[in-house]
């Protein structure tokens, strides 16, 4: 599934990124690499974007970005 479908507070692992170019570079620099743990932590009161907990930081991604990030749920 893609990151935008991740239920709140559920943990997941990044599997791959669809984006390319500067966007991909930036996402990777923020820690979105295959194998990284990620959790949806906060949703904006207007419904979008969502803040994800990645490597101890709250990183905000818009739905259109989250859609390009593939993740798999982890059972905790």
């Amino acid at each position: 599934m893609t990151l935008d479908q991740l239920p709140r507070a559920a943990g997941a692992l990044v599997t791959s990124l669809d984006s390319s170019g500067a966007e991909r570079l930036r996402l990777m620099d923020l820690g979105l690499l295959p194998g990284t743990e990620i959790r949806a932590d906060l949703t904006s009161p207007l419904g979008d974007p969502t803040a994800y907990l990645i490597c101890g930081s709250l990183i905000v991604l818009r739905r259109s970005q989250a859609r390009s990030i593939h993740v798999e749920l982890v059972k905790t």
Binding site: G21, A22, E23, R26, L30, L42, P49, A51, S57, L58, I59, V60, L61, R62, Q65
Partner: peptide
């Protein structure tokens, strides 16, 4: 024009 979105909540 190209655009890269990012925002961190410290």
């Amino acid at each position: 024009a190209t655009s890269v979105y990012s925002l961190e909540l410290p």
